[in-house]
Computed example of a mutant assay.
Amino acid sequence: MTDEPHFTGIPAQPPLPAGSSAVPLAGVIGWPIGHSRSPRLHGHWLKRYGLRGHYVPLAVAPEHLGQVLHSLPRAGFVGVNVTIPHKEAALALADVVTDRAALIGAANTLIFRPDGRIHADNTDGYGFIANVQQHAPEWQAAAGPAAVIGAGGAARAVVAALLEHGVPELRIANRTRIRADQIRAEFGARVVVYDWAQIGNMLEGAATVVNSTSMGMEGMQPLRMPLDALRPDALVTDLVYTPLDTLFLAEARARGCRTVDGLGMLLHQAAPGFERWFGVKPEVDAALRMAVLE
Rank of each mutant, 00 (worst) to 15 (best):
V82K: 06
D238S: 10
V192Q: 12
R156Y: 12
T109M: 00
P145C: 11
A207F: 01
N81P: 13
A92L: 10
L203S: 03
F248T: 00
P14H: 01
V284E: 15
K47W: 00
P85T: 13
H268Y: 14
V56T: 08
V260K: 01
H268M: 10
I104P: 05
I33L: 06
R156W: 08
V191C: 12
T242S: 08
A26F: 06
P15S: 09
L41N: 06
P137C: 11
I178W: 10
R224N: 08
W139Y: 10
A18V: 15
H64Q: 03
R177K: 15
R289P: 01
R175E: 13
A18P: 15
T8H: 02
L110Q: 02
I104L: 02
S21N: 11
A143I: 04
G53S: 04
E294I: 01
N174I: 09
G200Q: 03
E164H: 12
T123E: 00
A61R: 15
G166N: 13
G19H: 08
F112M: 04
I104E: 07
H165Y: 14
P15W: 01
A90D: 11
R184N: 13
Q182K: 06
V28N: 11
T237W: 01
A154H: 08
A120E: 09
N211F: 11
L249H: 09
N81Y: 04
V78S: 13
E218L: 14
A197L: 02
I172R: 05
L203D: 06
A229F: 01
G34E: 15
G264E: 00
G150V: 00
S21F: 09
L72R: 06
D238F: 10
V28G: 07
D245V: 04
Y55E: 08
E283G: 10
L170W: 05
M217C: 00
Q13P: 02
L69K: 02
P85H: 10
A160P: 09
S214F: 02
T176M: 13
L163V: 06
D121A: 00
G219A: 04
G125D: 03
I111F: 14
I84H: 14
A271F: 10
S21Q: 09
R184M: 15
H42K: 01
E294S: 08
L110H: 00
A160D: 15
R100T: 12
Q133P: 06
T259C: 12
F187T: 13
V28I: 15
V192G: 05
M215A: 11
A254S: 12
P232I: 04
D261C: 05
L110A: 03
